[in-house]
């Protein structure tokens, strides 16, 4: 018994998980009203080569003077050199970030949390379902899967937003449609303007697309990210169509403050979103109270 204390107190902490690295904004792209994509490069050039992550993980970004925000990585680890984050201007910290310019220096630490099970997915079909800003972490998965295309069977992307204006990565996703190794279906809640019509395949809710996905549910892994209210409906529709709870993974949003399971804010049920998540199997979302 006495040993266990000594063991804990003699661990060495070579790296400080709380200490951010310096990053510089290399590029900013306007995506939609209040949505921008920031590309970061590490000031310490070696890190640009060595820093790695998996799709679905997040980082803690320090906005100078304002504080730290948890943001999912939207770029793919298969494309090294920059770390890309898509950020909505929604609070006191993101507001400051949105005023920053190329060349500005910020702090970044991570990556944190688990990832979409890209290894388990190998040899199976992949169905990716994104709603709104949920496209950000899934963009990482889309490019990861496409860059390792031979490892996966059929790949599907369903993406729903409110209207054309709020569609993220318009050009990129538009180009994806012409590829024959991924099937994309985009849907808008309500089609009004001409622009809307040009973009969308369909009008309605994203759940309406699930029945027409021609994948063998038993051989398919599903990745979902969207607004919290959507999970219940998407989950139910997936189950109805024969997808397996254990193969459906959702990415959850919570109030991560430390990223390493110390501050408590992101507790959900008995788990911490930052260390046990943010990617959870659908089973968890059904069985952990108040998860979705």
């Amino acid at each position: 018994m006495k040993k266990s204390l000594e063991k804990l107190l003699t661990i060495s902490t070579v790296h400080d998980p709380f200490k951010p690295q310096k990053v510089r904004i290399a590029d900013i792209e306007y995506l939609a009203p209040d949505h921008k994509r920031f590309s970061f490069v590490f000031v310490d050039e070696e890190l640009n080569e060595t820093w790695s992550f998996k799709p679905g993980q997040f980082v803690m970004l320090t906005v100078p003077k304002a504080g730290e925000i948890p943001i999912s990585i939207c770029s793919s680890p298969t494309r090294k050199g920059t770390v890309e984050l898509t950020v909505r201007n929604v609070g006191r910290k993101t507001n400051v970030l949105h005023q920053m310019k190329c060349g500005d220096v910020l702090g970044l630490r991570g990556p944190y949390g688990n990832s979409f099970p890209v290894d388990l997915m190998e040899g199976h079909n992949v169905l990716i379902i994104a709603g709104g800003l949920g496209m950000a972490p899934l963009r990482s998965l889309v490019w990861y899967v496409l860059d390792k295309r031979e490892k996966y069977k059929k790949v599907y992307l369903l993406y729903g937003t409110r209207n054309y204006e709020s569609v993220l990565y318009k050009d990129e996703l538009g180009r994806l449609k012409s590829r024959n190794d991924i099937k994309c279906i985009y849907i808008l809640d309500k089609v009004g303007t001409e622009e809307d019509k040009n973009w969308t395949d369909r009008e309605g809710l994203i759940t309406s697309l699930i029945p027409e996905v021609d994948l063998d549910p038993a051989d398919t892994y599903v990745a979902v990210c969207g607004p919290p209210v959507a999970y219940k409906f998407i989950g139910a529709e997936l189950i109805k169509n024969g997808y397996q709870e254990s193969k459906v993974f959702v990415s959850l949003e919570r109030k991560m403050e430390c990223g390493v399971g110390k501050c408590g804010h992101c507790q959900v049920g008995y788990k911490f979103t930052c260390v046990d998540g943010p990617i959870f199997p659908l089973w968890d979302t059904k069985n952990l109270p108040k998860m979705i």
Binding site: L8, I11, T13, F18, V260, G261, K262
Partner: peptide
């Protein structure tokens, strides 16, 4: 002892707590 476990166990022990 419980705080020790929270802050020191796992992949990211807190150096300041330690």
């Amino acid at each position: 002892a419980i705080l020790d476990a929270v802050y020191l166990k796992g992949e990211n022990p807190d150096p300041r707590y330690l």
